[in-house]
């Protein structure tokens, strides 16, 4: 295929037409499938954190522990709720700087900040739960195993998060490099 032919073939590609109503539906956030799906997941996880905050004080003997231990746990859980909700800001607007390279550069920075914030808040939550649950505890083998299991679950979750987001950030950085003179 010659290059002129290439341009002609490109211009000749048949495209379906969307109606005004279909476009209107697409621009309404509530009808946006990927955002809706993400929204649901974030809201469910945030609701779980909030329920935990309401229940832990009596169910997990928070009332028998000092104020600062409760404050650490509540603080780390609250930070995780903020982290969950911050993903909306990330997806809502990719940005439109003066050119593609600058937009992707800005977006890559945004992704990196979200990645670091998530890692820090998750590590904080892990520390908060460990401090809370091990305060004034009499250790035995079962409790040590339970704590090790809890740490393993957190670590696996963090590992997969790191793997996924590292590849996303690397992909955007690769594109930024491509558009560098």
């Amino acid at each position: 295929m010659e290059l002129n032919e290439l341009q002609n073939s490109w211009k000749g590609i048949k495209t379906p037409r969307l109606t005004d109503q279909q476009i209107y539906t697409m621009i309404k956030q509530n009808d946006h499938p990927s955002l809706q799906k993400g929204q649901k997941q974030v809201l469910i996880e945030s609701a779980c954190f909030i329920i935990f905050l309401f229940l832990y004080y009596t169910m997990l003997d928070g009332n028998k522990k000092p104020f600062y231990i409760n404050a650490i746990l509540v603080g780390t859980v609250m930070l995780n709720i903020i982290q969950q909700l911050s993903v909306f800001a990330l997806n809502k607007n990719i940005g439109a700087a003066d050119n593609i390279r600058n937009t992707l550069k800005g977006y890559s920075g945004k992704l990196s900040r979200y990645y670091i914030f998530t890692i820090v808040t998750r590590l904080g939550l892990m520390a908060g739960i460990i401090i809370f649950s091990t305060y004034n505890i009499v250790w035995d083998t079962n409790k040590i195993i339970l704590l090790a299991l809890l740490m393993a679950v957190f670590s696996i979750q963090l590992f997969f998060f790191h793997k996924l987001w590292k590849s996303r950030i690397d992909k955007v950085r690769e594109d930024v490099l491509y558009f560098r003179d």
């Binding site: 439109a96 937009t103 992707l104």
Partner: peptide, 29 residues
């Protein structure tokens, strides 16, 4: 739609559409 308010008319509308569309294609996972 989200960025149309920030379009100030300094660039041609076609240029702006190409830019946003390609940014989205490159950044959307």
């Amino acid at each position: 739609w989200k960025s149309h308010r920030s379009f100030n008319g300094s660039a041609q509308v076609g240029t702006w559409i190409y830019r946003v569309a390609l940014n989205t294609a490159l950044a959307d996972f």
